[in-house]
Lab assay of single mutants.
Amino acid sequence: NKFNKELGWATWEIFNLPNLNGVQVKAFIDSLRDDPSQSANLLAEAKKLNDAQA
């Protein structure tokens, strides 16, 4: 379904953000699993944090 596809894509993108540490990645992935409907918002937050830590 739509959420599974978005969840998978967001998970892959978060895993590939180079400036996040393992704890941050795990926290974002756990949040995605808790509420897949928020995948776009969580991915945006992860990208912002990644950019801030560059």
Rank of each mutant, 00 (worst) to 15 (best):
N1F: 04
N1D: 13
K2A: 13
K2V: 11
K2I: 14
K2N: 13
F3I: 12
F3K: 08
N4R: 06
N4T: 10
K5I: 09
K5E: 15
K5Y: 11
K5D: 15
K5V: 10
E6N: 10
E6C: 15
L7F: 11
L7V: 10
L7T: 06
G8E: 15
G8F: 15
W9I: 10
W9V: 08
A10D: 04
A10E: 05
T11R: 09
W12H: 07
W12G: 04
W12T: 05
E13P: 02
E13K: 13
F15H: 05
F15W: 10
N16K: 10
N16V: 04
N16H: 11
N16C: 13
N16F: 05
N16T: 08
L17S: 01
L17R: 00
L17C: 04
P18C: 14
P18T: 11
P18I: 07
P18E: 06
N19R: 02
N19K: 02
N19Y: 14
N19C: 12
L20K: 00
L20E: 00
L20A: 00
L20V: 01
L20R: 00
N21M: 08
G22R: 13
V23Y: 15
V25Q: 06
V25K: 15
V25L: 08
V25Y: 04
K26Y: 11
K26D: 03
A27S: 11
A27T: 09
A27G: 07
A27K: 13
F28N: 00
F28G: 00
I29Y: 05
D30M: 12
S31I: 10
S31G: 07
L32M: 12
D34W: 09
D34P: 01
D34A: 15
D34R: 14
D34V: 10
D35M: 04
D35I: 03
P36N: 02
P36S: 03
S37E: 06
S37G: 08
Q38N: 14
Q38T: 04
Q38L: 07
Q38Y: 04
S39T: 13
S39R: 07
A40K: 12
A40G: 06
A40I: 10
A40Q: 11
A40F: 12
A40V: 10
A40H: 11
N41R: 14
N41T: 13
N41V: 13
L42G: 01
L42R: 03
L43F: 05
L43P: 00
L43A: 03
A44S: 09
E45T: 09
E45W: 10
E45F: 10
A46Y: 04
A46R: 00
A46F: 04
L49F: 02
N50T: 01
D51V: 08
D51E: 13
D51I: 10
A52T: 08
A52K: 09
A52M: 13
Q53S: 04
Q53G: 04
A54R: 07
A54Q: 11
A54K: 08
